[in-house]
Design a protein around this nucleic acid. Structure first.
Lengths: 125, 125
DNA sequence: GCCATTTGTCCAACATCGTAAGGTAAATCA
DNA sequence: TGATTTACCTTACGATGTTGGACAAATGGC
């Protein structure tokens, strides 16, 4: 397979979270990082686990069980890291997203740069 | 409906194509523009029509039948334009994509700006 | 008028991805 | 021991992506 299949949006988000978290990437931390990246929209924990499973099936991430830690409720975590394939898929996906962004920004920039910039983040009935 | 549902990737692509094509947006031209935006990956015509249908159901685009044109095989086309809701959804979706791009670029920038820039800098600008 | 060709739309069916809801397990602490 | 905390996993379903081909309307040559 020369090119990895293109990622879904949520898959992209989860991979990005793992990319950021480095050594501390496991279900719960990934979930909260994804939540942070996704903005105001609520993200369920189950969604994260399901997606991690599918990413692992596709060989984009690898996982292993850590030892328990001596804290209250500190049971063993399943830690994740990006595989080479995953990094590459994320890279391609990010570049593709950027390209779309550039096109959209250019079109909008020509037509309505001013009003668009002013209204940033507001609700316009 | 305060916030439009977030767009899928292909939906985003199709809306972008309509945004670019303006007056000349119908099935076939949208398909070829989407193909152009999607890069090397093959895009089927059917995928475009199905997605246009769903976007219209959601009120993000509107369509109407044009008159036939006097060319060989020039039958009536179903033309599309962005609705206000669609423009807004595309805008939010683009901003979200940009945010992810920024995060990824920053992380990668710290670790491997040089090699990465060499590989992608020419085509990506 | 036929019929091949070109341009174009549309649908059914299946694959993949996103999401909610709830269940299970292992650790600490009183 | 049982309550609490932290964590993982499964099932099921809705939304989106994708394929493949059917159908329809125009022209142009005969």
């Amino acid at each position: 397979m020369a090119r990895p299949d293109s990622l879904g949006q949520f898959e992209q988000l989860v991979l990005t979270a793992i990319l950021i978290l480095l050594e501390d990437a496991y279900g719960v931390t990934i979930h909260s990082k994804v939540q942070e990246l996704a903005g105001p929209k609520a993200v369920s924990l189950g969604a994260v686990y399901v997606t991690l499973d599918r990413l692992e099936d596709k060989g984009l991430v690898a996982s292993w069980m850590s030892d328990p830690t001596p804290e209250r409720g500190g049971r063993a975590k399943r830690c994740y890291r990006l595989e080479a394939l995953g990094e590459r898929a994320l890279q391609e996906s990010a570049v593709a997203a950027k390209r779309i962004w550039d096109v959209i920004a250019e079109v909008w920039g020509k037509e309505r740069a001013k009003e668009w910039g002013k209204r940033w983040g507001k609700e316009a009935g």
